[in-house]
Design a protein around this nucleic acid. Structure first.
Lengths: 204, 204, 204, 204
DNA sequence: AATGAATGAGGGTTCATTCAT
DNA sequence: GATGAATGAACCCTCATTCAT
């Protein structure tokens, strides 16, 4: 409510941009969200033309919305890298990423094929951060070396998004995912002579 | 005009259903496929009204198309269960599932939120089969017991679909996925006392 | 009205295309015609989507409408060239062109900058025909030789369209135009020594 | 806030009107000019609401803009009448009119059907001036008497506008136009007995 | 009084469905 | 029964005008 900074109308415009953005992200969170310009405008309490004008087209609006959701995630990833070791950073990041995504169900569908500037840039940053985590953890001996980091980045990214989309968002599934993933990523000690021979042989 | 058999009309109807189905599945496979009724009809060499009439609406058509794609997958899963051990069945099934999905890119997008009868039923069957695999493998000691089978089923299903959607479909990523997943699913031997304590502790 | 040729629905489609075309040309004739797709559709007694679908876009619709109006004019020009001498052809053609245009007021505005295929092609044909008339008349000694035929073609074309647009369409103005133009186009005999010196000196 | 004079506001309003007018006339000159209120305002360095408010609507703005362009033309016509003989006045005026129009391409499109007060009044003045030129020239024996002055006024006005609109603005075409027009307007000496009989017979 | 922003009306286009042939 | 065509609803976008600051 601290708006009376003085500048005449700019404040309102900024507020409405925020409103539109919030409405868009809210619809991005609903599983069956409509994501039409009019639906967003209605939810924001604005006219349809207003949100179009504020962003310059639907694509730009969605770009901004997705980016505004993604930005703190990226930020968090980069901060984690500075604060804790790479393995712990990866684990923590995944927990938070999934929690975040669970609250914004449609975002993955939108992210697919989104080549709009802000989103694409953030995605690149995100990939970089995760790659750094994985490379670092690998260097620390916490992640297996028989798989390429690049592949693991894609693997982690795609599966995390997929898990986050599960409905209903189950703590149990998230726990299972993290457990299986982190254990599977570890350097594998050759197990006690099993009937099936050494682990991890897939020749499709 | 040479219909001959007297059930000619019925035979035609069946043939047209097949044509429409094939066209829909073909479009489902193309990454940028247009999935409009008219596009499907054109591909099928039929009129738009015919394909609608044959299924009673676009939703029913897509239901049938997805189901027709899913059916052999389910079939394969159930057959594998009868023929090989559950762990091997799971592994093999995943390989094939991903390969199948990679060849039908749009299907996952469609599967999301599809509660149409045929597809939903098949999905239930698929879940059952995978559950059986997991329960069996767990009984055999090939899968860890600290995670609930139901959660693992969801986990496996969602991540497999996610990996299959990767573009470009990379052998390397699929391999990494299968390796990490199968290793992560195994009963974990307690590692040598690490600083971080025993494995698989996530306190989000 | 001879439509009952047998082919099921094509006949109706053709009829509706004609209806849309007629509606468009009718609006093209009205000075303040609205020329929106919906106005055309309403006038034709059709849905807006129908006329769009029938032509593939508003531009194509206007192209077809203008072309359908222009085609008989071009045809007439070419026929005249075969039947009468070039000077008489030019004169007759202009009379008819203006009469035609007077009945379709908006067409000139549309012709400006129309680079759609059918219209552009017809315009080229029209220019060719008029050029042939002028070149022929010049060869016959009926048109002055101190001005380039190409310039005269443009001159005749633009002014004829302009005269046709006069409201109200006055016979008197058309007559004055034709008289002045044709006389001005003739080889000019040096008049009796006037105060102002020889004719036709413009040095802007 | 340093307004000083007390009539500052009014002075500002006048200045803004001028700015808007200049912007509008500048846009009127550009062939592909956008002519939206916002474009005009941007070019004028003003707010959109300001230019609307200053004129009371877009139509009034265009009226004023066109009028401001037309006014000097009318002025020039009336001045020429006072300074040189009517025939010379007509010729000179046409040269200048065409040059002026060529520099303001969009104006003719706007003039069509403009019945807004300022423009209409100026047009009437312009018609009067040209009529005076023609009547005067006719009295001087420089213009043929077999055509009504009123018709010639319309004829000259429409065709001049049409020629001015030619793209690209060609000196050659303008020259051809003036030559043909002025020669055609002259009293016609009966030609030597031609096969086609006396000149200027049009039987449409 | 000036203005940036808001907006309602309207434009063209697409598409699943319906209809007449 | 099959079909090409018709269509109403919905979508995104533009613009002249209005309003709150």
């Amino acid at each position: 409510m601290v708006e009376g900074t003085g500048r005449g109308r700019r404040a309102d415009a900024v507020r409405n941009r925020q409103l539109a953005l919030q409405a868009a992200t809210a619809l991005l969170a609903e599983p069956g969200g409509t994501l039409t310009v009019e639906a967003i405008a209605r939810k924001a309490g604005l006219g349809a033309a207003t949100v179009v004008r504020a962003f310059g087209g639907k694509e730009a609006l969605l770009d901004a919305a997705v980016a505004s959701l993604l930005a703190p995630v990226v930020d968090r990833a980069e901060r984690l890298l500075e604060q804790v070791g790479p393995e712990r950073a990866l684990r923590t990041f995944l927990v938070e990423l999934i929690a975040f995504q669970s609250a914004h169900h449609s975002i993955s569908d939108q992210l697919e094929g989104m080549e709009t500037p802000a989103t694409a840039a953030l995605r690149r940053q995100l990939v970089s951060a995760v790659e750094e985590m994985i490379v670092g953890a690998r260097r620390d001996g916490a992640i297996r070396t028989d798989l390429e980091p690049a592949a693991l980045v894609t693997l982690v990214g795609r599966t995390a998004f997929a898990i986050a989309q599960a409905r209903p968002a189950s703590e149990e599934i998230v726990h299972a995912y993290l457990t299986v993933l982190m254990d599977g990523l570890r350097p594998q000690s050759p197990g006690p002579g099993s009937k099936e021979g050494p682990r991890s042989q897939h020749t499709p």
